[in-house]
């Protein structure tokens, strides 16, 4: 399926509900080690719901989500993070009471070993060193996004999930942020990005899943997909 032998993340018939409202209808996604996978789809297609289910913010069945072969669907968010899955949440969600540096250091709360230390994050985003003492929410949108990525990296994840990295940011900032993804991959991290900006997603991804109304409507390598296929899968027309 993915071509890479080792599967980092797999979901099996994953479903998700908000109360009585069903948001996901049996999603199967496989992510191999070292891959960068993009999930695209229109508003309300279930992309963010998918990430929230994977990290345990929404409940799912034990076997519906596996990480490195082990079932994690039944675990809670804080347990899943400690196993090496980090989420950069939509809207960054920095802690307003914490300084930039405290936000970053809190990312390492689970004390996982790995290449990412605060110095390494500062190397990646030097602005975070300059503004270390400011409250996280006093940063500009792009800087906040960098801080949110840095915070997630501090947990030394084997799998980094990014929700709408480009949301509300200027194109030049978006390019800057997407430029660091290869650096992160080079440290051995696998990445899943959820993105509404199709071009951005197709540029960066090894493989793409397209969601439509809570189901996978298309998947494949960007080069193998025609514009028409993507448009149909995206808009459902």
């Amino acid at each position: 399926m993915s071509g890479t032998p080792e599967t980092v993340l797999a979901t099996h018939e994953l479903t998700a509900f908000y109360g009585d409202f069903q948001a996901l209808f049996g999603i199967d996604v496989h992510v191999g080690r070292g891959e960068t996978v993009a999930i695209i789809g229109a508003n309300g297609a279930g992309k963010s719901t998918f990430l929230r289910s994977v990290v345990g913010q929404l409940p799912s069945e034990r076997e519906q989500v596996t990480h490195e072969g082990k079932p994690i669907g039944h675990l809670q968010a804080h347990e899943i993070v400690r196993r090496g899955i980090a989420l950069v949440p939509e809207g960054r969600l920095l802690f307003p009471s914490l300084s930039v540096e405290e936000n970053l250091r809190l990312g390492a709360y689970g004390k996982r070993a790995g290449p990412w230390k605060i110095e390494r994050v500062h190397e990646l985003f030097p602005v975070l060193r300059e503004r270390r003492a400011t409250p996280g929410t006093a940063l500009s949108g792009g800087e906040q996004q960098m801080c949110a990525i840095g915070r997630a990296l501090m947990s030394n994840p084997t799998l980094l999930l990014c929700d709408e990295l480009s949301l509300g940011l200027a194109p030049v900032i978006i390019r800057q942020i997407y430029a660091v993804l290869p650096v992160i991959v080079s440290e051995g991290t696998t990445i899943v990005v959820v993105e509404q900006d199709i071009n951005q997603a197709l540029d960066v991804a090894d493989r793409v899943y397209c969601f439509q109304e809570g189901r996978v409507s298309l998947q494949g390598r960007p080069d193998d997909l025609s514009r028409e296929d993507v448009a149909t899968a995206y808009f459902g027309v």
Binding site: A77, H78, V81, F95, Y109
Partner: peptide, 17 residues
């Protein structure tokens, strides 16, 4: 302090609320 701000996101940091 993080939990006080936003306990859902705090859980994403590995904090057991």
């Amino acid at each position: 302090r993080a939990t006080s701000d936003d306990h859902e996101t705090a859980a994403l940091m590995g904090i057991d609320n």
